[in-house]
Design a protein around this nucleic acid. Structure first.
Lengths: 205, 205
DNA sequence: ATCGAACTGTACCTATCGGTTCGATATGGT
DNA sequence: ACCATATCGAACCGATAGGTACAGTTCGAT
């Protein structure tokens, strides 16, 4: 079927398999044999495309960062009022953060951060920081339109607070309860709490 | 000096060494040889006190949870007004969360949560939940005294929001930048942002 | 028909892991 | 003086890790 084709198809197959294995077991506990079998590929082929286990790991993480970045940047502003904006912003962010892939990625990256600091930075920029930048833009617009009043604080500070408020509680809960699946009701409910709190603080009087 | 003494002294030594090694390398990458050497003890002695590597790990984590619990529960209420209360609450919590030991512990526990779910739960209760409970008590008192007004929200919800708001941003930053040391200025500054936001939301008008 | 690149399968190498075994040694309690 | 206990040190075991070597196969392109 495929052999001898100018195939970087295989490289992609291997990368997907590596992603699955690394996200399930972490870096140290994952083995190249698992990856090889999951990819349905011979061991030689794996090492023909990637020189070491580390290289495979960094390739996986960087690809995943790319994908996160796209997800976050594609959030659009629908001008239905600031409350609706904040609510959809919160829910969208939580959907990303609480997805099984994102939770696994976060888990592994935090755990291996001392061993792969540059990868951790990349993720920080592509994930949380990108979200804060996006939220900051949207909130600055709302403030310009007179729908928010940050008082002495900057829009960026407010956006940082909002993003962290939205993310932290549920993310921490599911990071430390890996067997539980995030419930949509919980997401909606927490998003509402965040919006309420935020508007009590920053809605113009 | 010590041999043949009814020594659980050695057990303690081994536990401390195991803590250092596990917190530095995580569970999978840590080896029993490292622990044995760090403790200055023979391999046989390690296995005389702890049956397996897993048992050693759980013993370490449970001891550490105990210590966190004490730290959080020892936070006292100094009645100097609600703003001062919130500020010291935030700073105290951040000092705990951002301590090198706590960061390492969090890192390892999040990373190994799928393999040790019951340990992760224990930590969740002993750390974040305990903090929220404590904060909730203090805030309920302040609300009773008329210094806070939570509107339709419960004191527990407000405390959850506050604790997460305080913790998340800086904790995430240092989890993903392991080589950087938390700066006190950053802590104070962020604590002030949190208090400002919280009071804008919940100070009685 | 032939060549060369991609791939397979398997055997292999070396290192290291968690854990065991065992004889030697030192000690404290009686 | 004696024995039980705790420890040591070092050899050892089976398993498995990351990675390499190599002989053979499959294909597209010329």
């Amino acid at each position: 079927m495929s052999p001898a084709a100018p195939t970087n198809q295989k490289a992609h197959t291997i990368l997907r398999a590596a992603r699955d294995v690394f996200l399930e077991h972490g870096f140290s506990a994952a083995t190249t044999d698992m990856i090889q079998q999951q990819a349905g590929v011979s061991k030689s082929t794996v090492y023909a495309h990637f020189p070491t286990k580390e290289a495979l790991f960094t390739a996986v993480v960087e690809a995943e960062c790319e994908s996160f970045l796209e997800g976050v940047q594609s959030i659009q502003f629908q001008p239905k009022g600031v409350e609706a904006l904040l609510h959809t912003l919160a829910c969208t962010y939580l959907d990303i953060v609480l997805s099984p892939v994102a939770l696994a990625q976060y888990r592994v990256l935090v755990g291996e951060a001392p061993k792969f600091p540059e990868l951790a930075h990349r993720f920080y920029q592509a994930g949380p920081r990108a979200m804060i930048r996006r939220a900051s833009e949207l909130m600055a617009s709302a403030a310009d339109a007179g729908e928010l009043d940050f008082g002495g604080l900057s829009a960026e500070t407010a956006a940082t607070a909002f993003a962290n408020l939205v993310r932290s509680e549920l993310q921490q809960h599911y990071l430390l309860h890996p067997e539980a699946r995030p419930s949509r009701a919980q997401v909606e409910q927490w998003a509402e709490v965040c919006v309420t709190l935020f508007l009590r603080a920053f809605a113009p009087r």
